[in-house]
Amino acid sequence: MYSIEIQELTKIYSPGNPSKEVKALNKLNLNIPQGTIFGLLGPNGAGKTTLIKILLGITYQTSGSVKLLGVEDSYQIKSRIGYLPESHKFPLYLTGEEVLNFYGRLSGCDSKAIPGKIDELLAMMDLTKWRKTKVKKYSKGMMQRLGLAQALMNDPDLIFLDEPTDGVDPIGRKEIRDILLNLKDQNKTIFINSHLLSEVELMSDRAGILNKGNLLRECSIAELTTNNEEYVIHVDRALEQILSQTLIDEFKVKKSVEGVYSAFVTETQNINDLVDAIRNNQITLKEISLKKKSLEDVFISIIQDAEKEGAK
């Protein structure tokens, strides 16, 4: 079952006005299964926030359709949704617990259950001792944690987080990560917009890369970061002195550091040929693995390719 279903979603700002017209989303298709943490990546102006806003009915699409938790176009479904916007503004005259009470009541929470939920979430976010303090005195990190607590007040099945770790220190980030992973274990679906690629890599199961309103890639984090061509080989001797030059050229074997080599295979080659050659030469093969690329490398490479493609 999909928690989010998006079909041919297009958003054009100021349509019909050539000087102002902006295509923020272009026929976007995306399905996100229940119980997934999905990270949406993209440079500034890619359309990430617009996408979340359309999903939540804050902005309207020009064409296309969206379904959240199997329901199309209904604000009532929002009682099962949590949202932490980027740069959220809480009423500064309220205390932390009053903020949670207000948004909890707006979210349709059972009024009897609200006090208990507030206690639970303030403890989870380490804000209990600040509960009676007006939020205008909160630091950015505290505001962010309160924002996350607010998004969880109604025990949502689907949670949208726009830059959830923005302004949070490393320990706080780790705590938020743990909370989100715990929510995922409860079969909640989490949709994250973030500039922090390492965060997305650590938390998400799947990721999408959006650029200029086009979804360039959407797959699992493992698929994104695994490089199917390059291997890292750890051996106890110098390969370049033992293996034939033909084999070294064929697999483009290169020394990285002492005892560590990289090797490339094409679709027509088999890495086993290289492994056999190493073993036949009495070289101890300590380790061989597919080289993992960082999400940042993948992201930059995909965006640059798209830019080059666009320039053509």
């Binding site: 804050i58 604000y75 949202y83 707006l106 949208f160």
Partner: peptide
């Protein structure tokens, strides 16, 4: 209607 405030309000089940 300030950004960050209206987004939050409209994300709730209130018309």
């Amino acid at each position: 209607l300030e950004k960050g405030n209206i987004d939050l309000l409209l994300s709730k089940p209130i018309s």
